[in-house]
């Protein structure tokens, strides 16, 4: 006798096929870039064998070197600054009872997520152009300020999520067990929120590292970061060197995201 086909409440015809096709579509172009970054031939239509030539060329390219150092410098500083202020803000807004103005603070912190990036970029261009003329300072400070600002919500969200998931009675328990406010923070709150802070810092770093539009508008002459350098290269011809840079950047992002993923899954 034929066994009756098992009924599943959740199985929808075709959904699996669409999902797998979509994942293929998401990853195929990325895989192609990675593969061709190791292609010895200059043209994408020819496979010339495995080679690290384009990595070597990118490595020796002075512009790429400078852009890399600048990208990492800006991203590190922006991540550090935004994480510190976001941690303080998260402690102020998510810990304890609602207070007057809390909704306003939420909205203000998430504001960079609401305005289209091109609009923020234009606004910063306008203001910083005047400041550059008025002060004569054209250094990296503008980029660091702009990146720190738009990284705040990205750093804030995982920290807030961590704090919201935190059992407030733990702090009450610490106070009950004779801990002062500062010792409660140091011995209970801080260790428990640490994974959220680390995750926020990493997200901020990735977001800053990947930014194109705001950087393109805010940077002074000769202040290319890796993404704006690549955008400039695309205007001319596509060279496999860009594939190599993309792959390297991709690798860094994936490493950081995996760390983020593991940290945010950490239970205790």
């Amino acid at each position: 006798m034929a066994e009756a086909r098992r009924f599943s409440v959740s199985a929808m015809p075709g959904f699996r096929a669409i999902t797998l096709a979509a994942f293929a579509m998401l990853y195929a172009p990325i895989v192609i870039i990675v593969v061709y970054s190791f292609n010895a031939a200059e043209s994408i239509s020819v496979w010339g064998g495995l080679s690290l030539e384009w990595y070597g060329r990118a490595w020796e390219n002075e512009q790429v070197q400078e852009a890399t150092v600048r990208s990492l410098l800006v991203a590190s500083l922006a991540a550090a600054i935004s994480t510190v202020v976001a941690t303080a803000a998260a402690l102020g807004t998510t810990h304890g009872a609602p207070f007057p103005g809390r909704t306003f603070i939420y909205a203000a912190i998430n504001q960079p997520l609401m305005a289209p990036e091109i609009v923020t970029a234009v606004a910063l261009l306008i203001v910083f152009a005047s400041v550059k003329v008025a002060t004569g300072y054209t250094g990296l400070g503008y980029l660091i300020l702009a990146h720190s600002a738009f990284c705040v919500p990205f750093a804030y969200l995982p920290i807030r999520a961590r704090l919201e998931g935190m059992d407030l009675s733990l702090e009450t328990a610490a106070a009950d067990l004779y801990a002062t406010r500062w010792r409660t923070f140091r011995r209970v709150t801080l260790p428990l929120m640490a994974p959220g802070v680390a995750a926020g810092a990493m997200l901020a770093f990735v977001v800053s590292l990947d930014d194109v539009i705001i950087t393109e508008f805010v940077k002074s002459a000769g202040q290319d970061t890796l993404p704006t350098y690549m955008l400039g290269q695309l205007r001319r011809a596509v060279t496999p060197e860009v594939n190599a840079i993309s792959t390297a950047l991709l690798g860094l992002t994936v490493i950081l995201l995996t760390a983020f993923f593991l940290l945010s899954r950490k239970r205790d």
Binding site: L170, A173, D268
Partner: peptide, 11 residues
């Protein structure tokens, strides 16, 4: 206090 949720420090 012995808390309803116990409030044991997970770390």
């Amino acid at each position: 206090t012995v808390f309803q949720s116990y409030a044991l420090f997970p770390h």
